[in-house]
Design a protein around this nucleic acid. Structure first.
Lengths: 104, 104
DNA sequence: CTGATAGATAAGTATCTGCTTATCTACAGC
DNA sequence: GCTGTAGATAAGCAGATACTTATCTATCAG
C-alpha cells in the first residue's frame, strides 16, 4: 500500500502485463497467464506481489479465483506524480482533454 | 527511458528522496546527499540510475555538477497511468481542481 | 470415493540490487 | 608544480528478485 511496494510491483514487465490484461475485466489466473512465457507458479507469485501492493483484488468463486483491478490501488502513484506537476510540460493539455472527455 | 527503467528507478526510497530534493531547484551531489544515510558513492550510483531512466539532467560547472529534474522524464509514467483512468475514483476531482489552479 | 483441474506454496538457484570501502579523475586555489 | 575537494568508478558482498520444478490444497465431475 506504500509507494515503495507499488513502484516495485510496477517495475516488472510481466506484472504490468497482468494489470494490462485486467483492464478489460475480471480474469482468472489461467487467463492472466496467456501470452506470458512464464510458468503457472510465476504468475501466482506475481499476482501475490500485486495483491500485496494493493493493485488487484480477488474474489473466490468455487475452484476459480477472479482477479480484478483494485480501484484505489494506483491512487498513491497519482498523488506522488502530482507533486511533480510543474515538470509535466505539454502533457497537461492532454490530461485536460482527457478530463473533459470523462465529463461526458 | 522505457517504463521498466523508470518504475525501477522510482522503486527505491533513496532515489525518490533525491528527486524530492530536486523539486526546489538544482542541487549538486553533496546537497543531494543531505539527510540520506548512505555514502557518497551510493548517492552517485543512485544518480546514475535516475539519469539512465531519464529522470534527471546534469550540467557540469567546473568541478561541481548541478543536477536538476528532467521535465519530460516522468511523462511515460503519466501516460501509463492515464490508461488506468477508469480506476481513479474520486481522485479525478482532485486532479480537476489542480488543473484549474494551474490555469491561474 | 476417484480423478482432474485451479491455484498456492516450498525449495532451490542464477542473477540483480544496494550498499560498502578503496581508489581514481578532474578541476580549483595557492 | 602541489594540495584539497567534487564526484565517478572498481571490486566485493549480503540480501532480494524472478524464475524454475515439485508438491500441496481445494473444488468440481463422474
Amino acid at each position: 500500500m506504500n509507494e515503495t511496494d507499488i513502484f516495485r510491483a510496477l517495475a516488472d514487465p510481466n506484472r504490468r502485463a497482468v494489470l494490462e490484461r485486467l483492464l478489460d475485466g475480471e480474469k482468472n489466473a489461467t487467463e492472466l497467464r496467456e501470452g506470458l512465457r512464464i510458468s503457472q507458479p510465476a504468475v501466482s507469485q506475481h499476482v501475490a506481489v500485486l495483491r500485496g501492493a494493493g493493485l488487484i483484488a480477488e474474489k473466490k468463486e468455487g475452484r476459480h479465483v477472479r482477479y480484478s483491478l483494485a480501484p484505489e490501488g494506483l491512487a498513491p502513484v497519482l498523488d506522488w506524480l502530482t507533486r511533480y506537476r510543474a515538470f509535466w510540460p505539454e502533457r497537461v493539455e492532454r490530461l485536460k482533454a482527457l478530463l473533459k472527455e470523462m465529463d461526458q
